[in-house]
């Protein structure tokens, strides 16, 4: 943040106000919010009713599902040393399937199902963290391998027990108005956002995450328990993914084993579009929330436009590339 401001004022030496304004519009979160408004307006012109209250609510529900996975992804990426979690998709699927089996359509089973899902997600996350810290396996390799294990586990579970279904109360919580006409999952997402903001900005743990992410050696010298922090980040990532898995079960009613794969790379994209670079140590969750909304609105507009699947994918890929140009590009060799 301070870096952006500095470069902004440097380039705008002749006119500090202009420089500051330029710096502001280069803030990832501002970019994301402006793009969200533009896309909503575009959607409304293309298909009237796109930006209606009800429709926006539906978009936000989908964005919340992505946003909660992206919270964990965000933490792992903030922690630096090429932190990335490719196994989140597997955890989402696993949590959805397990939660479905545990609750099996009964409201009474929601809490046990949630606990089982969080425990399993936390367990696999902790395994990732231990592999990354104690064995020093690169996160990409470790979580990629773990993804394979989880996909295998899903086959075992699916063949063993018939797939369960969501409890009515869970479905209501996710997709029906819950409090003040707003669905429960959005309250949950707000809670996750507040929790992340508090954790990252107001606790020792949060400061240490940034410290470890920007300079691990220095953080270690200053007494931060680097390994424990990194294990905690991966564990939290597994648990956030599991939380999305349970909500996803409520959203779709039943679970199937490949249901979570759609979250693997989009969760990373949401983090990047929210202004957290993959190099870690910089950024935060507020931007990621905006990134998740942006991604979901973009996809939704492409569904609205009457073009076939091929055109949709081409436009989506090209738009993502253009969007990325707005965000932290690598430095030039000339420095």
């Amino acid at each position: 943040m301070s870096e952006v401001t500095r470069t902004g004022t440097e380039t705008g030496n002749a006119n500090p106000t202009l420089g500051r304004a330029l710096a502001l519009i280069r803030q990832p979160i501002v970019v994301a919010l402006v793009l969200i408004v533009i896309l909503l307006a575009l959607g409304e012109t293309l298909s009237p009713g796109f930006a209606s209250g009800q429709q926006i609510m539906r978009l936000l529900i989908v964005a919340a599902l992505l946003g909660i996975v992206a919270a964990g992804q965000n933490l792992v990426i903030l922690g630096g040393r090429e932190g990335i979690d490719l196994s989140v998709g597997g955890v989402v699927s696993l949590a959805a399937v397990l939660a479905g089996n545990v609750m099996n359509g009964a409201d009474i089973g929601i809490i046990p199902a949630l606990l089982v899902a969080l425990a399993v997600g936390g367990f696999f996350g902790a395994c990732n963290g231990i592999g990354v810290t104690l064995l020093r396996i690169p996160p990409l390799v470790m979580t990629l391998g773990m993804l394979g294990v989880m996909q295998g586990l899903l086959v075992v579970i699916r063949n063993g027990i018939p797939s369960g279904s969501a409890a009515p109360l869970l479905s209501t919580f996710v997709s029906k108005p819950f409090l003040f006409g707003i669905p429960g999952i959005l309250w949950l997402w707000v809670a996750v956002g507040l929790l992340m903001a508090f954790m990252l900005r107001r606790t020792v743990f949060g400061y240490r995450v940034y410290a470890v992410g920007s300079n691990e050696q220095a953080a270690y010298m200053a007494g931060a328990p680097v390994k424990r922090i990194r294990v905690a980040l991966f564990t939290l990532s597994g648990m956030f993914a599991a939380l999305t898995g349970v909500c996803l079960l409520g959203y779709s009613g039943t679970s199937f084993s490949g249901v979570g794969e759609q979250y693997m790379l989009p969760s990373i994209i949401a983090v990047v579009l929210g202004g957290t670079p993959l190099s870690g140590g910089k950024g935060g969750y507020t931007g990621t929330m905006a990134g998740a909304v942006l991604l979901v609105i973009l996809q939704s507009i492409l569904v609205t436009i009457n073009i076939d699947e091929s055109g949709r994918q081409m436009v989506f890929g090209a738009t993502l590339l253009v969007l990325m140009l707005f965000y932290g590009r690598g430095r030039t060799m000339r420095g």
Binding site: L265, I268, P277, L278, L321, M324
Partner: peptide
């Protein structure tokens, strides 16, 4: 264009 390889 110097985009991050994984996401790009």
């Amino acid at each position: 264009l110097r985009l991050q390889a994984i996401v790009a």
